[in-house]
Nucleic acid binder design. Structure first.
Lengths: 243, 243
DNA sequence: TTTATATATGTTGGATACAACAGGGCTGCC
DNA sequence: GGCAGCCCTGTTGTATCCAACATATATAAA
């Protein structure tokens, strides 16, 4: 059994179904990079690691499959799905979109209680220097805003995409996350509170630019790591849409 | 066994796993309204309907569960999840958002081949009078645009939300879908082709308004049908964000 | 009559055994 | 030596049995 799989060994918490525990644990393992893309996931191994039979493992696998986190080949088993560079870029693009939408939905109507939490977040963000922590702080900031919209669907989709972002970030941790973002976060909050659409738009635009830079650096890291996946050419977009 | 469950009886297609067939069939049943919200789904019944054991049924159920299409209570069984009015509105709001984003991404760069398909779609749309067909035509239009972006994540999320939209529409089919939309679709395509952002924005704005009206009518229909679920008050938003 | 307890029942959760299938390696023949 | 066919092995797919748990019900006692 792979040592990574062994590391998943977890006491099945009472009052929670085994398949749930397995699902969440494996999912977390994928996000953190403990189970890197391409890792083989044998049902038997997982069953042994969690000290259960294959049945709950299979249920967990089916859940992960529908989320496109693993890929199953009936004869050769499952692996943690390998994201292409395109998929990474697409994910970050849409995530950015949703976060922008959250800001727009909150314009001029941010609750005071949230404001304090945001203040706390950005204050902490100013002090952080570790890129991994900065990333976490940044993600938390946007998560707070998304949650504040109260739109359950937006919240759910954001969670999904943030998960992938986390996975990507952990996969290419050598790539530093854009720094100096905390100050901009403060300004963004102020703009939303003041219902100052112009400034907010400006900041979001800047943010978008930063994310693009970030994406480019990720692509670079990916291409260094594995040259199997190539960035799609603009021209292929058209071909693809013809089908 | 419920007659609805019986209606699912399907020959298991060779070369496709039973759990897959069950998953897709039940999912489609939920979308079309054959299995209305609240319908009880007993594993045993489904197993009998598909002439398999409970095992593949359970795997299918786990998939549906992770998509929030069914709700499972370990002791009393599963039901097709009952969407609250809030969730319906949230879904339509985000779906609208994604479709807008697709338009923006395509500004000035719509491939000619797609243009012809869109033309075909809108021409057909002008002739339709049946609200159900109009809805289908409308959904197809946006789906085409979304697919044309080539962003796999956007496409996937749109599919998810379109599914829910379909479900909602089928659930309250008495509510007529906004009509006279086909002509606006034509104009929108033209604006995208011409990179005429102003007109596009205007049309999208108008569209948003229409969708809001549509949503209001759905709320009305829902409240008529069941007064269990109430529209959230604005004030609760703040309370919710404090936690 | 009411309440508490025990029991019966319906439903899913988990374990185990077996089937099916694909892939690789080995052997035998050319 | 090379190639083809067969068998073996590894892995998932499915069936079936038993366990657990919650709910409803019936019964007996206060």
């Amino acid at each position: 059994m792979d040592p990574q799989i062994k590391a998943l060994r977890t006491r099945i918490i009472e009052k929670r179904q085994a398949s749930d525990t397995i699902y969440h644990t494996v999912r977390e393992g994928i996000a953190t990079g403990l189970l890197p893309m391409g890792t083989r996931l044998r049902e038997e191994d997982l069953a042994e690691a969690f000290d259960v039979s294959r049945t709950p493992v299979r249920e967990a696998m089916k859940k992960l499959e529908i989320e496109c986190l693993i890929e199953t080949n009936s004869s050769s088993g499952s692996i943690v799905r390998i994201l292409t560079v395109d998929e990474c870029l697409d994910t970050l693009e849409v995530l950015e979109l949703l976060r922008e939408a959250a800001c727009n939905m909150l314009m001029g109507r941010i609750p005071r209680s949230l404001l304090m939490v945001l203040e706390q977040n950005t204050r902490k963000g100013l002090e952080l220097t570790d890129p991994a922590q900065q990333y976490e702080n940044n993600a938390e900031f946007h998560e707070l805003l998304v949650k504040a919209t109260g739109n359950s669907v937006l919240i759910k989709l954001s969670e999904q995409l943030s998960f992938t972002e986390r996975m990507i970030t952990n996969a290419v941790l050598s790539v530093h996350y854009a720094s100096n973002y905390a100050e901009r976060h403060r300004m963004l909050v102020k703009a939303i509170v003041d219902n100052d659409r112009e400034t907010a738009q400006e900041l979001l635009q800047y943010n978008k630019q930063k994310v693009e830079e970030y994406m480019c650096r990720i692509v670079g890291a990916f291409l260094d790591a594995s040259s199997h996946h190539l960035r799609k050419e603009e021209s292929t977009l058209y071909e693809r849409t013809e089908s």
